[in-house]
């Protein structure tokens, strides 16, 4: 059962304030698996896409008087808005990487080949972490098809792409 943190933006909007930053700040503080329950004086449709991009599905209930309660809960299959960070909502409970690869110096698509080869040697549940020179856009499709989970993103230096993969049961 998802635990929800409540955010009521009705008083903020009535006072003429801007609720988006408060919603986002709350989102930052959510623990893994926690959801966000929003009370709003209208159906916050634009927010649905934003939240879907951050890996949250939503259920909404009309409260009457035009007010809505919307429950955003984390979903396994995040629908990324721009960067495809993952097909897994969180990597916090993943074991430490069994294999670490640094394929930054290899020409694409060689990193993809190496990573898939290494993944095949792991048992389900084990993880692999890799550092790449580029975002491996075509690798993700293959990982998903093979039932693996992954999270990835550029490191703070902007030039190294860090990818963690947890092997699936298949």
């Amino acid at each position: 059962m998802t635990e929800f943190i409540d955010v009521d933006v009705r008083p903020i909007l009535r006072a003429g304030g801007e609720p988006f930053s408060i919603i986002m700040a709350t989102l930052q503080r959510l623990a893994p698996g926690q959801g966000l329950r929003l009370y709003a004086p209208f159906k916050p449709v634009p927010l649905f896409d934003v939240m879907a991009g951050k890996g949250f599905g939503h259920e909404e209930t009309e409260l009457g008087g035009g007010e809505w309660e919307v429950r955003f809960s984390p979903v396994g299959q995040a629908v990324p808005a721009n960067e495809p960070p993952a097909n897994a909502a969180s990597a916090d409970d993943w074991p430490a990487a069994t294999v670490q690869l640094d394929v930054r110096e290899l020409d694409p698509p060689e990193p993809m080949v190496r990573i898939l080869a290494a993944i095949e040697q792991l048992v389900p549940g084990q993880t692999l972490s890799a550092r790449l020179g580029r975002e491996p856009v075509f690798l993700f499709r293959e990982l998903t098809k093979r039932g693996h989970q992954w999270r990835g993103g550029f490191a703070a230096d902007g030039s190294t792409y860090e990818l963690t993969i947890r092997t699936g049961a298949s």
Binding site: P109, E110, E142
Partner: peptide, 21 residues
């Protein structure tokens, strides 16, 4: 050639030796 390579060898990559693009 790149799309053909990905289409043909993507599914078996890591499981069998595959050619380069």
């Amino acid at each position: 050639p790149f799309l053909t390579w990905l289409e043909t060898y993507g599914p078996v990559m890591g499981k069998a030796p595959t050619p380069r693009v």
